[in-house]
């Protein structure tokens, strides 16, 4: 009897920790990775994102209040564009721009869209991106 109750109550914790560990490994691997996107859909304009487009590329960062890596992402991207005159960084508060968030299917913050010179999305990173990956993605845009 004592043994069955023990098994009964150990099963949930095994399920919880097992699935959380699997999800956590996926989370760690996928967050920050820049996914290249086939160009489709409508171009984003300066008035939609609330800031000028860069002449070569624009990094559009969606942020929210309850987001720790948003700050680090802002610092990184501001740093990246500081040395590049043809690339701009625009930060958008996801909370007050829910229409745009829905339209672009932004699910979590930070999410960074990489736009080409015509404002078309060519890549996106969910989570804080890595510096070298941002440079590589920008180098791929002519």
């Amino acid at each position: 009897m004592a043994q069955t109750t023990l098994v009964k109550s150990f099963l949930p914790i095994l399920i919880v920790l097992g699935s959380a560990a699997a999800y956590g490994l996926w989370y760690q691997k996928s967050r920050g990775k820049i996914q290249a996107k086939a160009i489709s859909g409508k171009a984003l304009t300066a008035s939609i994102i609330g800031g000028d487009l860069g002449s070569r590329a624009t990094l559009v960062q969606f942020s929210s209040a309850f987001c720790t890596p948003c700050r680090a992402t802002r610092t990184l991207l501001e740093n990246v564009v500081a040395d590049l005159s043809d690339v701009r960084h625009v930060e958008i508060d996801a909370e007050t721009n829910l229409e745009l968030v829905r339209k672009l299917d932004i699910r979590s913050t930070p999410t960074t869209l990489i736009l080409n010179s015509s404002g078309l999305e060519v890549g996106r990173a969910v989570g804080a991106p890595k510096r070298d990956q941002v440079f590589a993605a920008l180098a791929a845009i002519k």
């Binding site: 959380a20 999800y23 989370y27 929210s64 987001c67 720790t68 909370e95 913050t109």
Partner: peptide
């Protein structure tokens, strides 16, 4: 609650990032 705490402790999971916007 345990899953969220475990994800935070082990993977530096940001719950607000993932859940708030949804």
């Amino acid at each position: 609650a345990l899953a969220a705490a475990f994800l935070n402790a082990a993977f530096n999971y940001c719950l607000g990032c993932e859940v708030y916007l949804l």
